[in-house]
Design a protein around this nucleic acid. Structure first.
Length: 197
DNA sequence: TCCCCGATTAACT
DNA sequence: GTTAATCGGGGAG
């Protein structure tokens, strides 16, 4: 397993990258220097041919970074108040991405709690908007390189073995297919409840 | 321009 | 189980 994730690793199809992102480590450096770490436990894949994907109708100002280089960050605002984190996948221009839906807090609980406005550990990073809020990420970080030395980075960590990954349909998607493109670490205390089949 | 509604969350009854 | 909060993208007029 590579010590650090390479550009080529991200340049594959989202449904391939998404399960392999489980167990990886998000490293966030806040403007004041505080370092936060969270271990990814839940992801969802989005591809351009998929009506549920923001890239379905082609590039716009909002989703531009989805069509940028792989391994970069795509941040969007939902419902006018919540931000969500994505990792761009596939070759540049494709429009693939993986939504990071939940994480396990590793380092920086206090700062995460302050960002979230709650100290409840099981609600710090469990949910796409909660994760973004805990890490202090908004649209100002949209498009940054996760492989560089920037304010948000992705470390290789330790991937979750296939046998410990549960696959379900995606959450909150109303349009189109109910493709089984959601991946969670089985029985993780830090992920959200899975939809009934 | 106007209007609808979303890859969500928390606080209700 | 239901609903408000709150913004902006994008299709309709």
């Amino acid at each position: 397993m590579p010590r650090s994730l390479t550009r080529a690793w991200f340049a594959r199809a989202a449904p391939l990258v998404a399960p392999e992102l489980l167990g990886r480590i998000l490293v966030r450096r806040l403007p004041d220097g505080t370092v936060l770490r969270a271990r990814i436990v839940e992801t969802e894949a989005y591809e351009p041919a998929d009506p549920a994907s923001h890239s379905f109708k082609g590039p716009t100002a909002r989703n531009a970074s989805m069509f940028g280089p792989p391994g970069h960050l795509y941040v969007y605002l939902v419902y006018g108040l919540h931000h969500c984190l994505n990792v761009v996948t596939g070759p540049p221009g494709r429009g693939g991405a993986v939504l990071l839906r939940a994480g396990e807090p590793l380092v920086g609980h206090d700062a995460m709690a302050a960002n979230r406005g709650t100290a409840r550990e099981d609600r710090l990073c469990s949910g796409p908007a909660r994760l973004a809020q805990a890490l202090g990420v908004d649209r100002s970080l949209d498009g940054i390189d996760l492989l560089g030395s920037g304010p948000l980075r992705l470390h290789a960590g330790r991937p979750v073995p296939r046998a410990r990954i549960t696959v379900t349909r995606r959450i909150g998607v109303s349009t189109g297919v109910d493709t089984p493109w959601r991946f969670v670490e089985t029985d993780s205390r830090w992920s959200l409840p899975s939809p009934r089949v």
